[in-house]
Simulated assay, not measured.
Amino acid sequence: MKQSGCYDISTNGVVAMVEPQSQKGQIQQIVYRILDANLDRAREGLRIIEEWCRFGLNNASMSGECKRLRQEVAIWHTNELRAARDTQGDPGTELSHAQEEERSSIKTLLQANFCRVQEALRVLEEYGKLYNSNMGKAFKQMRYQVYTLETNLMGYERQQMLMRSRLYLVTSPEEKILEVVEAALKGGLTLIQYRDKETDDTQRLKIAKQLRQLCYTHNALLIINDRVDLALAVDADGVHLGQQDMPIAIARQLLGPQRLIGRSTTNSQEMQQAIADGADYIGVGPVYETPTKAEKAATGLEYVRYAAKNSSVPWFAIGGIDTANINDVIEAGAYRVAVVRSLMQAEQPTLVTQYLLSQLNLAPSEPSQSHV
Results as ranks from 00 to 15, higher is better:
residue 123 V to Q: 08
residue 108 T to P: 02
residue 107 K to N: 13
residue 98 A to W: 06
residue 136 G to W: 05
residue 136 G to I: 08
residue 140 K to D: 11
residue 142 M to E: 10
residue 129 K to N: 12
residue 116 R to V: 01
residue 144 Y to D: 07
residue 120 A to I: 00
residue 144 Y to L: 08
residue 143 R to F: 05
residue 107 K to A: 14
residue 120 A to K: 02
residue 130 L to V: 10
residue 121 L to G: 03
residue 141 Q to M: 10
residue 121 L to F: 03
residue 149 L to C: 04
residue 149 L to P: 02
residue 129 K to E: 14
residue 103 R to T: 13
residue 129 K to C: 06
residue 147 Y to D: 07
residue 104 S to H: 10
residue 140 K to Q: 14
residue 128 G to M: 06
residue 139 F to H: 03
residue 125 E to L: 04
residue 122 R to I: 02
residue 109 L to M: 13
residue 155 G to C: 09
residue 152 N to K: 11
residue 145 Q to F: 04
residue 154 M to D: 01
residue 116 R to K: 13
residue 153 L to C: 03
residue 148 T to H: 14
residue 127 Y to A: 10
residue 152 N to P: 00
residue 153 L to Q: 00
residue 102 E to Q: 15
residue 123 V to I: 15
residue 116 R to W: 02
residue 156 Y to D: 10
residue 104 S to Q: 12
residue 137 K to R: 12
residue 113 N to F: 06
residue 128 G to I: 09
residue 151 T to L: 07
residue 141 Q to K: 14
residue 140 K to Y: 11
residue 142 M to I: 04
residue 114 F to H: 03
residue 132 N to Y: 05
residue 129 K to W: 09
residue 138 A to N: 14
residue 115 C to F: 09
residue 125 E to C: 05
residue 102 E to Y: 08
residue 112 A to M: 04
residue 143 R to L: 07
residue 111 Q to M: 10
residue 133 S to F: 09
residue 119 E to Q: 11
residue 127 Y to C: 06
residue 135 M to C: 03
residue 124 L to V: 06
residue 114 F to D: 02
